[in-house]
Write a protein that binds this DNA or RNA. Structure first.
Ligand code: ZN
Ligand code: ZN
Length: 346
DNA sequence: GGTATCGGACGATCAATCAT
DNA sequence: TGATTGATCGTCCGATACCG
């Protein structure tokens, strides 16, 4: 009930893995390249003129920028600080990576059951809020299956430029994985255009010609994808540098690069600004033009989830897990290791 | 208005593979 | 043996249903 939504508040809990939205230090202004859409007036919606001057939006809830962040309070709380990133939009999505969602290592049983965000604290925020503190404990991770055969791997060699050359696997060794080469969801292969500084993730702006010297397109034109199907999907662009992000556990602290006065994003190529008029003024609505078309490519949807929303399976009239599924939590997570639906419970 | 439900995307982990 | 790949498992977003 204490809706603490500053401006687009993320999550209630303070120990969040991502830094607070500080007005001043955060969103610098950046330019988003005009949408190369050829025809169809971009301003038709009242969107700003091409060289959009925008500020970085506040961290979308649960999202984090995949770049170093100022260390959190260090209260033994959230493991890592990562900067929130922003949700790409249609045009942007072509080159933009999507914001990364940070997850807690282990959600408490209540949150897990309810499929809601949890936090590191033990009576987690949510449980506290709903008075479930007493039952707020983390569940038990099931052990991963072993002895599963896998078939040949595709090797991705990298050139100095960071291009990834995928060497196709044996023609017939059809592995047990999706034929498309795509791991499972859209986790596309990364395509490093420009190596990010150590410990940083790779990021790009759409249509943004990075200050790359001459041979920019890294020797010719190396199509970003290896699957050839996703024409530059968001996720296809940046992902943690494929080759082992050097000095940092993917999820957390980013040691170096703490420039006193200069916010980290300055050192880093950032995701395109979403469309926010001005920071601190509340965020009315993103400019329409940036909004991606309804779903087409399910994998491409905004936050990853696309056409969500479903009908209730059963009238909750029965043993509905009281306040968050304490009722029969485990029952949901019955499935194990299917493949497609990922071990999702429910 | 709030909370509950839940499909499915996405993140993180780690065993199987592969290169050295 | 170390590095890399990719499947598995877990988290949780976000739409919808239900309830007071
Ligand atoms: Zn919790
Ligand atoms: Zn809890």
């Amino acid at each position: 009930m204490h809706a603490q939504h500053p401006a687009l508040a993320p999550y209630p809990y303070a120990g969040a893995p991502y830094p607070p939205l500080h007005a001043g230090a955060y969103p610098p202004f950046v330019y988003a390249a005009p949408v190369p859409d050829g025809h169809h007036d971009p301003n038709a919606n009242g969107a700003p003129q091409p060289p959009f001057l925008m500020a970085y939006p506040p961290p979308p809830p649960g999202m984090v920028y995949a770049i170093p962040a100022p260390m959190p309070p260090a209260n033994g709380q959230a493991p890592g600080g990562v900067y929130p990133q922003f949700a790409p939009s249609a045009s942007i999505s072509q080159v933009m990576p999507r914001p990364k969602r940070k997850q807690v290592k282990m959600a408490c049983t209540n949150c897990a059951t309810a499929c809601k965000r949890c936090d590191e604290a033990r009576p987690c925020e949510r449980c506290l809020k709903y008075g479930l503190a007493s039952t707020c404990v983390d569940g038990v991770r099931k052990e991963r299956k072993k002895g599963i055969k896998r078939g040949p791997y595709k090797r991705k060699n990298k050139s100095l430029n960071g291009d990834t050359i995928v060497s196709a696997p044996p023609p017939q060794g059809l592995p047990v994985s999706p034929p498309n080469g795509e791991a499972h969801d859209g986790h596309a292969q990364s395509l490093p255009y420009m190596l990010a500084p150590e410990g940083y993730y790779q990021y790009f702006y759409p249509g943004f010609a990075p200050p790359v010297p001459a041979h920019a397109p890294a020797d010719g034109s190396q199509p970003p994808q290896q699957n050839g199907s996703t024409n530059g999907t968001p996720s296809a662009v940046a992902s943690p540098t494929p080759q082992a992000p050097p000095a940092q556990p993917p999820a957390s602290n980013h040691p170096s690069l703490s420039h006193p006065g200069v916010p980290p994003y300055f050192h880093q190529v950032y995701p395109p600004p979403f469309n926010y008029p001005t920071p601190g003024v509340g965020y009315p609505q993103p400019y329409p033009i940036m909004v991606p078309p309804p779903a087409q490519d399910p994998k491409n949807d905004q936050n990853g989830d696309s056409g969500k929303g479903k009908k209730r399976a059963h009238p909750s009239g029965s043993a509905t897990p009281a306040t968050n599924g304490e009722g029969d939590p485990k029952a949901k997570r019955a499935r194990t290791g299917q493949d497609d639906t990922n071990g999702v419970g429910h």
